[in-house]
Amino acid sequence: MGLFKTNPFGHILFVKKWLIRILGLLTHRRFRGFNELQIEGSEVIKNLPDTNVLFISNHQTYFADVIAMFHVFNAGLSGRLDSIKNVGYLWNPKLNIYYVAAKETMKSGLLPKIFAYTGSISIERTWRSKGQDVNRQVKMSDISAIKKALDDGWVITFPQGTTTPFKPIRKGTAHIIKTYKPIVVPIVIDGFRRSFDKKGLRVKKKNIYQSMEIKEPLKIDYENESIAEIVEKIEYAIEQHPSFLKVIPEDELQEKERLNRELRDW
Rank of each mutant, 00 (worst) to 15 (best):
Y117R: 13
D65W: 10
H175A: 04
I248G: 01
E250P: 00
S243F: 11
E232V: 02
P182M: 10
V134Y: 09
D265C: 00
K94D: 06
K94F: 09
E225Q: 14
V134E: 08
A228W: 07
E213P: 03
I248N: 03
S211N: 11
L259K: 14
L110D: 06
L245W: 05
P93K: 03
P186I: 01
E223G: 13
G153N: 08
V100H: 04
T157Y: 04
F196H: 15
L81I: 15
G33L: 10
G24R: 04
M106T: 15
F4R: 02
G79T: 03
W18M: 12
F196P: 06
W266Q: 01
W91P: 01
I234S: 12
Y99M: 05
K139Y: 05
F70P: 05
K139C: 00
W266D: 00
L23Y: 09
S120G: 12
G10K: 08
H28D: 02
F73I: 15
D190R: 10
E213T: 15
N47R: 14
N47K: 15
I189L: 15
I20K: 07
T6D: 07
S144E: 14
F34H: 07
V44P: 08
V231H: 01
L48H: 08
F244L: 07
S42I: 06
L19F: 12
K113Q: 12
Y98D: 04
D265A: 07
Q254F: 03
T179G: 02
T6E: 15
A228Y: 09
I238S: 04
E216Q: 15
P93M: 03
V184M: 05
E216I: 07
W127F: 13
S226D: 01
A145L: 03
I39H: 04
A174C: 07
Q254Y: 03
V87C: 09
L23E: 03
F4K: 04
V203P: 10
L26K: 05
K204T: 11
S243G: 03
D221E: 13
K16L: 07
W266S: 01
K147E: 14
M106S: 11
E229H: 06
D50G: 05
S195F: 10
H241L: 00
E255N: 06
N52D: 06
F115P: 06
G161E: 03
P8F: 12
R193W: 06
I220D: 12
F14S: 15
P159T: 03
N207D: 13
H175M: 10
I234E: 11
E43S: 12
D251G: 00
T118C: 14
E232D: 11
V44K: 09
K167S: 12
E257L: 09
L150Q: 00
F63Y: 13
E235P: 06
I97F: 12
I121C: 10
R193I: 01
H71W: 09
K181R: 15
F55D: 02
N52C: 01
E40R: 13
R170E: 14
V155R: 07
N47H: 14
E252Y: 10
D50A: 14
I169S: 02
V87E: 11
L110M: 14
K206Q: 14
I189V: 15
P112R: 11
L95C: 03
